[in-house]
Design a protein around this nucleic acid. Structure first.
Lengths: 398, 398
DNA sequence: AAAACTTTGTTTAGCCACTAGACGAACATG
DNA sequence: CATGTTCGTCTAGTGGCTAAACAAAGTTTT
C-alpha cells in the first residue's frame, strides 16, 4: 500500500530539510535556515526546538550581527552518536567507528588468508566489540552497524553468494542484530563504496555516480538520481561479468569474455605470470610488488599496467554510454595503481566515448584509499538512524 | 531549492493517490478507495468531489450491495481530454490521438525517404492539425503533444543529434509550443518506447524495465524504480555503442566493436549482402523481405537471423548483469523478426547470464507493434497534464 | 412486516502543522 | 540617545486531515 500524506509526513519532511540545511551549512542561524529553505520563521523555530531536544543539533554562541540583533548559531551535533562500518575483504577485515558526520574516530584492521566463515565472524565480533567499547559517551550511543561484503546481497540483507569467500546463503544480518541489539545493514561492497564516494568523496554534489570497485574481481555500484540503485532483487552492478569480447575466454561465471578477465587485479596478476614476471608460486605475486616493479622502471610491468588501464577504459566507456553519469570513480585495490593506469585509460575514453557524453564528465580514482566501503555502510547506518529520528518519538512505556 | 512541505502538497499527493486508485480499479466506491489507500472516508469524499468538479472522474449508477447501502461507483473519465503522440522514424512518421487512458482514437501514418527537416516538419504539422481537428469535444480538449525522435535529446527537450535524420541542434519543442500553444514533450525514441511498454505493454507492474529499441541502430530506454532514467544530461541508454568486441570493426561513432554493429537491423542487412543473399543495389534489401525469405525456408536467411539473435543475447546479458531488471523488452523493427530471433537469443541468455539473475526475469518482444514510442510520448503528455491538474487551480482573471 | 444490523457517504468537531504578522530583545548607526 | 535593523518568539488564523456521529439505503433476522 502506498504511503498516504498527512501532517506527520509534512513535519517529518520539513524537519529533515532543516537538519540537512544545518548539517551542510553550519554554523547557521534560525532566520537563515528559514529564508533559505522557504519555511516560516516560526515553523523553523519549532522544528529546531525538536532537534535540540533530540540532541541532534546544538546552539553555539552568538554569531556576527548584520546590522541588528546577533543570531544564535546552530550546529549539527556530530558527536550525538556513533556508527560502525565493517568492510569484509577477501583477505582483510576493516572496521571503523565514525561520528554522525562520518568522521573516523577509530580504525581497526586485520589481514588473514583462507579463513572460514566462522573464523571471520569471530574476527568481526571482536572488532565490533572493541569499537563499541571505545565509543565515547553520547546521547544516542552506537546507532547501528553496517557491513560491506564482496558478494551478492539480496534485498533482505541475506548474503546469497560471495564466491571469493566461498560463502553462500548466510543470514549475517540476523546474527548481528541478535548479538548486538542494534540495526544492521548488509550491503554489497561496491554499492557501499559508491555511497561512500558520494558522501565523502570528490563529487558530493553529483546525482549520478558510478563506482567501479576493481579488485580481485570487478563490481560496480550505481548512484542514480542521488540514490543507490539496487535492481529488482538487489543484484545490479554485476558489470564484472559484462561481455567485452564475444568469443573470449571462459569465465568461471559461465559467460565468455567478461570484463573482469581483462581489467581486474586477478587478470593483471595472471598476465604477469604469463609474461614471466613472476613464477606462479612466487610469494611476491601481488599488486603492491607489481607497482614497485613499475616504479623501479621495469618496462614490462609498466606495459602490463598500460594494458590494464586500456581495458578498464573499455568497460568505463560502456558505463558512460549506458548511464551518462557526472562521475565515474575507480576504487578498491586497483586504485592504488592509479599512476600507472590513468594515462592509457584516459586515452581510451577520450578517443572512444561519444562526444556529447564527454562534457562535464569526470573520471577519476578514489581518494578515500581503502575506506569507501566501510564509510559507505557507516553512512547508510547513520542515514537510517536519522530518518527514524525525524519521525515523532513514541512515549516509552514501562 | 528543495521543495518544502505544506498542506497543499499533502492534498496534491492524496488527490493523486485517489485518482490513481480510481483509474486502476474502476469501478470503485468512495468507501473502497478510503479503506484501500488508508485515508479517512471524509477526506476521500472531499477529494472525489474536487475530481468530479474537474471532470476527471464521473459517477456511474449504484453498484452491488455487500449487505448494506449500495455504493456509488466512480470511474476515470477517459474522455475528459486527448493527447497527441508523434513517432518520427527515419523513413516514416506516425501520429496517434489517444484518450487520457492511452486508448488510441485515431492513427495517422506516412512513409517517406530522405526528407529534409523542413519537409518532415511540414508532414508533422499536417498530421497534428488533422489529429487536433478530429478530437471529439471534451472538457479539457487536447492536453499536449509528445514527440519521439531517433536521436539524442537533452534535458531541455532540444534535439542535439539525430544521425540517421542528419539533424543537429534543433529546438523543435519551442516551434511546436508556439504554433499550437500546448505543452510539448520531446523525448528520445527508446526512452519513450520504454515508457510506452511500461504503461501499455506486458509488465505494467514492473518497476525496472529495459526497452531495447533495435532498428537501424540500437537505443535503449531505462525504466528504473518505476521512472525513466535519463542520466545527467539526458544521454543515457546509448547502449548501441557498447563495446562487445574489444578490437572489433570501427563504428561510425569512433568506437570499435559496438553492439549495433552486430545486432541491429543494419548489421543484419549488411551481412545479408556479404553472404550474397542480396546485391547491395537490390531494391528488396530490407527486413520484411529477409523475413519472407526465412519463412519460405531459406536456410541462409534463417542462419542470419539466428546469428543476430545470438548477438542480441550478448548485449542483453550485459543489460541483465547491469540492471537486474524484471523485464527486458525488445522493440522496434527487429521485433518483427521475433520468431526467427528468439531461439538463439534465449539460448545465449540461458547459458550465460548469472544464475541468480535468471529468477523472475522476463525477456520478450514488444507486443505493441510499432506503437510503443508514440504511446509513450502520449503517456508522458497525459501524466504531465494530470499532475498539473492535481495542483489547486488558480482563479482565472480576465 | 417489523426490527435489527450493515454499509455508504456526508457532516461535524477537533487536531495539528503551517503561515502571517505582531512583538520584544538585542544590536548597529548617526 | 533616538532610530532602524535583525533575530527569535508568540499569537491568531488557515487548511487539510481524522474520528466519530449521523442519515440514507440496503440486507438479514425474527
Amino acid at each position: 500500500m502506498t504511503k498516504t500524506w498527512n501532517h506527520q509526513v509534512v513535519k517529518e519532511g520539513n524537519k529533515s530539510l532543516v537538519l540537512d540545511k544545518i548539517k551542510n551549512n553550519s554554523p547557521i542561524s534560525r532566520a537563515a535556515v528559514a529564508s533559505q529553505i522557504g519555511l516560516n520563521k516560526g515553523t523553523v523555530s519549532s522544528l529546531v526546538s525538536d532537534l535540540l531536544d533530540d540532541h541532534l543539533i546544538y546552539e553555539s554562541g552568538p554569531g556576527e550581527s548584520s546590522g541588528g540583533r546577533r543570531p544564535v548559531m546552530l550546529l549539527f551535533n556530530d558527536l550525538a552518536g556513533y556508527a560502525i562500518g565493517i568492510d569484509i575483504g577477501v583477505n582483510y577485515l576493516l572496521g571503523v567507528l565514525t561520528d554522525l558526520s562520518g568522521n573516523i574516530q577509530l580504525k581497526k584492521e586485520c589481514s588473514f588468508k583462507n579463513l572460514s566463515y566462522e573464523e571471520i565472524k569471530e574476527k568481526m565480533f571482536s572488532t565490533i566489540d572493541s569499537l563499541i567499547a571505545s565509543a565515547p559517551d553520547s546521547p544516542h550511543g552506537v546507532v547501528g552497524i553496517g557491513v560491506g561484503v564482496p558478494g551478492v546481497v539480496d534485498k533482505d540483507g541475506e548474503i546469497l553468494l560471495a564466491p571469493n569467500l566461498k560463502w553462500r546463503n548466510l543470514d549475517l544480518k540476523s546474527v548481528l542484530e541478535e548479538k548486538y541489539g542494534l540495526p544492521v545493514i548488509i550491503e554489497n561492497e561496491a554499492n557501499a563504496g559508491a555511497y561512500g564516494e558520494k558522501r565523502f568523496g570528490a563529487g558530493q554534489e553529483c546525482e549520478n555516480i558510478i563506482y567501479v570497485s576493481a579488485g580481485i574481481g570487478i563490481g560496480v555500484g550505481l548512484i542514480l538520481n542521488g540514490t543507490l540503485y539496487k535492481g529488482s532483487n538487489g543484484f545490479s552492478g554485476e558489470l564484472g561479468h559484462m561481455t567485452i569480447q564475444v568469443h573470449g575466454p571462459k569465465c568461471r561465471c559461465g559467460n565468455e569474455g567478461c570484463w573482469e578477465l581483462y581489467a581486474s587485479e586477478q587478470a593483471l596478476l595472471d598476465t604477469a605470470v604469463q609474461s614471466g614476471l613472476f613464477a606462479s608460486t612466487d610469494e611476491k605475486l601481488d599488486l603492491p610488488h607489481l607497482i614497485q616493479l613499475a616504479e623501479s622502471g621495469n618496462e614490462e610491468a609498466i606495459a602490463l599496467f598500460k594494458k590494464s588501464g586500456d581495458y578498464l577504459g573499455v568497460g568505463i566507456n560502456n558505463i558512460v554510454n549506458t548511464f551518462n553519469p557526472q562521475q565515474v570513480v575507480i576504487g578498491n585495490r586497483m586504485a592504488s595503481a592509479k599512476n600507472w593506469l590513468s594515462e592509457s585509460l584516459n586515452e581510451r575514453v577520450a578517443n572512444q566515448a561519444l562526444w556529447f557524453q564527454q562534457n562535464d564528465l569526470i573520471i577519476g580514482f578514489s581518494e578515500l584509499d581503502t575506506l569507501p566501503t566501510a564509510l559507505g555502510v557507516a553512512a547508510f547506518t547513520i542515514e537510517n538512524f536519522l530518518s527514524v529520528r525525524m519521525q515523532p518519538q513514541q512515549a516509552i512505556f514501562s
